[in-house]
């Protein structure tokens, strides 16, 4: 295998890692901060891709990003409305919205399950034109993505230190305390989920524009992949400053893609991606629990021997 093809593989892994890292940052907000597992993530990711693709096809690649994020906010609004105002369990409301979005997404793509963006201008082709002729011209996708991810991280770091951001973090930490600070936890949950969904949709929009195609399955399994990435990132910094934790979430996402790329090189079939992400999530979430049980298991074994 030549050096350039290895380089290409790494580059693609970095790009995909950065694109999904925005979904990871969305989960960082909803799962780590707000303590809500938002299962509408898959559908919302596809929603962003579909809306972004349709708007990009009409010749507005930048507007596509804004439109995708607005669609994400709307989706987040519905999910949070169901769980805070309609008495539907938070996991269930995510699943319900996810299911409904399947139909919505096909409708958005004009009754089709896929769209081709080959001829459309995207934010990436804009960047390509912008830096054409410079030394970095080949890395136009990476540069675009690094800029977007940096903006998202900076936004999160600033936002989570504002009063609203603090209230959102407190809602996940101790809702009683939020209420006694005269803040309505319903309000903070809605805002948090809307922002998270906007990021998820942005992530989907970028993937569609990057691979110049959307299909209805583009987001399937995204929530597990993103969760796996988030938990890999947590290994480096589960506590500590918000900014560091956000950067670690992105690093986790990139590592996940790199490991996946390596696994593919060792002839792991591509369809195993989702299985691997599921295993990672199981290990990462259950490990602390199992670790805490080990002393008890040891004691039980000794107890049995003693008999």
């Amino acid at each position: 295998m030549s050096a350039s093809s290895i380089f290409n593989l790494i580059q693609t892994a970095l790009e995909l890692g950065l694109i999904s890292s925005i979904t990871v940052l969305a989960l960082f907000l909803s799962y780590s901060m707000l303590n809500v597992c938002d299962l509408s993530t898959d559908g919302c990711f596809t929603l962003g891709a579909a809306v972004g693709a349709v708007v990009a096809l009409s010749g507005h690649p930048y507007l596509a990003i804004i439109a995708a994020m607005l669609a994400g906010i709307l989706s987040g609004l519905i999910t949070s409305f169901l769980q805070t105002k309609m008495g539907i369990n938070s996991l269930l409301s995510g699943i319900i919205v996810n299911t409904a979005l399947y139909s919505v997404n096909i409708a958005i793509m004009g009754n089709s399950s896929q769209l081709n963006l080959n001829k459309a201008e995207t934010v990436f082709t804009k960047m390509k034109d912008f830096i054409a002729g410079t030394a970095l011209a080949e890395q136009y996708k990476l540069i675009t993505l690094i800029i977007v991810v940096a903006i998202v991280i900076v936004f999160l770091v600033i936002f989570l230190k504002t009063r609203l951001g603090l209230a959102i973090r407190a809602t996940g930490d101790n809702p009683d305390m939020v209420k006694s600070s005269s803040i309505n936890p319903v309000f903070t949950t809605i805002i948090g989920l809307c922002i998270a969904s906007a990021f998820t949709a942005l992530s989907g929009c970028l993937l569609a524009q990057s691979q110049k195609a959307v299909n209805i399955d583009i987001g399937s399994g995204m929530v597990t992949i993103a969760l796996a990435s988030l938990l890999i990132g947590n290994v480096f910094s589960s506590k500590g400053k918000i900014g560091i934790r956000a950067v670690c979430a992105v690093v986790g996402s990139v590592i996940f893609r790199l490991v996946y790329t390596v696994a593919l090189r060792f002839n792991m079939p591509a369809f195993m991606l989702k299985f691997v992400s599921a295993v990672i999530v199981v290990i990462a979430i259950s490990a602390p629990y199992i670790k805490s049980q080990i002393p008890m298991i040891k004691r039980k074994l000794l107890h049995r021997k003693g008999e």
Partner: peptide, 20 residues
């Protein structure tokens, strides 16, 4: 029950003070 464990003393107080 009265405070958020993963947030700092300052952040807890700031939320409770409700300023701004």
């Amino acid at each position: 029950r009265g405070s958020a464990p993963n947030m700092s003393v300052e952040e807890n107080l700031a939320l409770a003070s409700g300023k701004g």
